[in-house]
Structure formats: structure tokens, C-alpha cells
């Protein structure tokens, strides 16, 4: 009991420490490089006074560590700062009404969570089902076909799968919209309908991973003696898997799910761009293109935090589901 708690506290502490160091890496890698972003904001034709004023405003005159802790402190209190594109707009057009990053990001964060959630809802039951089937009938035509299909789908770039789905489901079939332009006031059903094509693309990628891992986990278990005992008792193969193998395969499977949701994070970026989906991935890519440093930092931190959190969850769940750790001698 105590040992488990200690391991858990240790892991969570490690996760927070990792996040802290990652925030230094993120902040450092865009701020330690030479190059003047004040100049970049205002363009080549700016006067020296204007550049100096902007430099003062975004704090480029201060030393690196002061800037980092200012940034981190503001971050912790929920102030994510103002993007350069907003500053540039204000500098060129006048006006003091700067929209903070928090307001820009919140609806997009929700959209991305919705897309990832919808993908998980479709992909998790589907891939578990297929993985169990492939493990049950391993070596059969179905298993070999599934192997070829999943390998191909893992290896294909996301945009290839996306264009194929657009071609068949949106252009030739006219069943689903090819642009996922969700709006905040959409009713849920319509929102699901609009988001379905990007979600299906992500499902194709994630299902392949999850299914292969589920299959491997179940096959590993099916070799153990108590499964052979269950078989010798004469119960049906499906019952052996569902009643005997699956509960014990839960730990690796939970791990697989968490790891693949972490994998979704990378896939979301490209898929959101293909479908012009208003999520964080799209925002991130736009910020990278315009070199909008504050926005890039925040988006990057959100992705990294989600990634660390999911990996941590996988870690914690596998500890919790391990009886040897739960009941120490």
C-alpha cells in the first residue's frame, strides 16, 4: 500500500518536474537564439523608436532568466500573454484592445478535445474488437489481411488517408462535408457530423496501432497455463478470451490506449490543417508560419503537457493494475 503510494507520488512529482524542464526547453529554444523579433513584428520599414518601444513592451530588454520566470509566473496565474499578430495589428492600426491568447485558445482547445474524444470513442472499441479477433484467429486469412491493412495504414502519411477519405466520402459520395468548419453554437449532432471526416482519418491511423498492440498483448496471454486449463475444460474460444484473457490483458491494453491517445497529439496537427478544422493544431501551424513566438510557445506547451499527462496516466494505471505492486509481500 505504502510502496504503491510512494511510487505514485514519485511518478507524479517526476511528471511535474519534466513539465517544468520542458517549459525551459520550449522557452529557451525560441528565445536564446539571436535575431530580433521586435524588428520582425514591425517589418523592415520601421523606425528605430518604434522598434525600441515594442522591444520594451514585450520585455526583450530584460535578461533571459527574468523573462522566463515572468512568463512562467504569468502562465501559472492564467495569463498566457498576447500574440505578436495582435501586437502587430495594434501597432499598425492603433487601438488598445488586445485580445489575449487565452481568449483565442479556449474555443480551439475545446474543438481539439472534441476531435480527439470523438476519435477515441470510435477507435477504442473498434480496435479492441479487431485486435481480439485477430488474436483469436491468428494465422488465418483474416489475421494476415488485417496485418497488411494495419501496416499500410500505419505507414501512410495522415494527409494521404485524409485525401482518400475526402475523395470517397465527401467528393464522389457527397455523404460528409470535406471542410470541418465547426462553429461554437452548433448542436451536438451537427457538430459530430461535421467533425466525422477528420475523426475517421485519425481513427484509421490510431486503430492500426491499437489493434496491433492489443493483438500482441492477447497472444502473449493466450500462451499462459491458466488459459490452457480453461481450454481443456472445454469452454468456447470466445469465452476464453472474454472471461479469462481480457481481464488480465486490461493493464497492457489501458497502456496501449493511453499511449495511442498521446500519439493522436501529433496526428491532430496535420489532420486539422487538411480539413481546416479550427483547433489548436491549426492555430499552432499558423503561428509557426508567421513566427508568432508567444503563441508557438503556448501551443507547444499544451501539446507537451498533454503528451506528458497521457504518458503519466499510462504509467500510473499500469502500476495500479499490477497486483504484485498492489499487494507487496
Amino acid at each position: 500500500m505504502n510502496s504503491v503510494l510512494r511510487i505514485l507520488v514519485q511518478r507524479i512529482g517526476l511528471g511535474i518536474l519534466t513539465l517544468f524542464i520542458v517549459s525551459i526547453v520550449i522557452f529557451g529554444s525560441v528565445n536564446l537564439l539571436p535575431g530580433d523579433f521586435a524588428q520582425a513584428i514591425l517589418g523592415q520599414g520601421a523606425t528605430d523608436e518604434a522598434v525600441a518601444a515594442i522591444r520594451e513592451q514585450i520585455g526583450l530588454t530584460k535578461p533571459f532568466w527574468v523573462r522566463y520566470f515572468d512568463w512562467l509566473g504569468a502562465l501559472v496565474t492564467g495569463d498566457l500573454g498576447v500574440s505578436y499578430s495582435q501586437l502587430m495589428f495594434a501597432a499598425n492600426m492603433g487601438g488598445d484592445q488586445l485580445i489575449p491568447i487565452t481568449t483565442q485558445i479556449a474555443p480551439r482547445f475545446y474543438n481539439t478535445m472534441f476531435l480527439a474524444g470523438l476519435t477515441a470513442m470510435i477507435a477504442v472499441p473498434f480496435s479492441l474488437f479487431l485486435g481480439v479477433l485477430a488474436a483469436l484467429y491468428r494465422g488465418s486469412v483474416f489475421d494476415r489481411g488485417a496485418n497488411i491493412f494495419t501496416l499500410s495504414s500505419i505507414s501512410s502519411p495522415e494527409f494521404f488517408l485524409a485525401y482518400i477519405l475526402i475523395l470517397f466520402l465527401a467528393v464522389q459520395g457527397q455523404w460528409l462535408p470535406s471542410l470541418a468548419s465547426v462553429k461554437p453554437d452548433m448542436p451536438l449532432g451537427e457538430r459530430v457530423y461535421t467533425t466525422l471526416l477528420p475523426a475517421l482519418t485519425l481513427t484509421l491511423v490510431v486503430t492500426a496501432h491499437m489493434m496491433r498492440m492489443t493483438r500482441a498483448a492477447i497472444i502473449n496471454l493466450l500462451a499462459s497455463p491458466y488459459i490452457e486449463m480453461a481450454r481443456l475444460k472445454g469452454i468456447s474460444p470466445m469465452r476464453v478470451v472474454v472471461k479469462h484473457a481480457l481481464p488480465n490483458a486490461l493493464a497492457p491494453i489501458i497502456n496501449v490506449i493511453a499511449l495511442n491517445l498521446a500519439y493522436l497529439i501529433t496526428g491532430v496537427v496535420v489532420v486539422e490543417v487538411v480539413f481546416a478544422y479550427p483547433g489548436i493544431g491549426n492555430l499552432f501551424v499558423d503561428a509557426v508560419r508567421t513566427r508568432d513566438i508567444p503563441m508557438v510557445q503556448i501551443c507547444c506547451l499544451i501539446f507537451a503537457a498533454a503528451y506528458i499527462l497521457l504518458n503519466l496516466t499510462a504509467d500510473v494505471l499500469s502500476i495500479l493494475s499490477n497486483p504484485r505492486l498492489r499487494h507487496p509481500k
Partner: peptide, 23 residues
Amino acid sequence: VDVLMAIPALIFSLLLITAAASL
């Protein structure tokens, strides 16, 4: 390596490319 692997690869490369693009 642990720290570098804590950021997803595509996200990290996009971040570094942002930095490199100014040079």
C-alpha cells in the same frame, strides 16, 4: 534524452523550425 523525448517529435521540430526560420 528523457527531456527531449518528453515533447512529441513533430511538435518539437515545428518549434525548432520556428526558431531556425528567423536565422
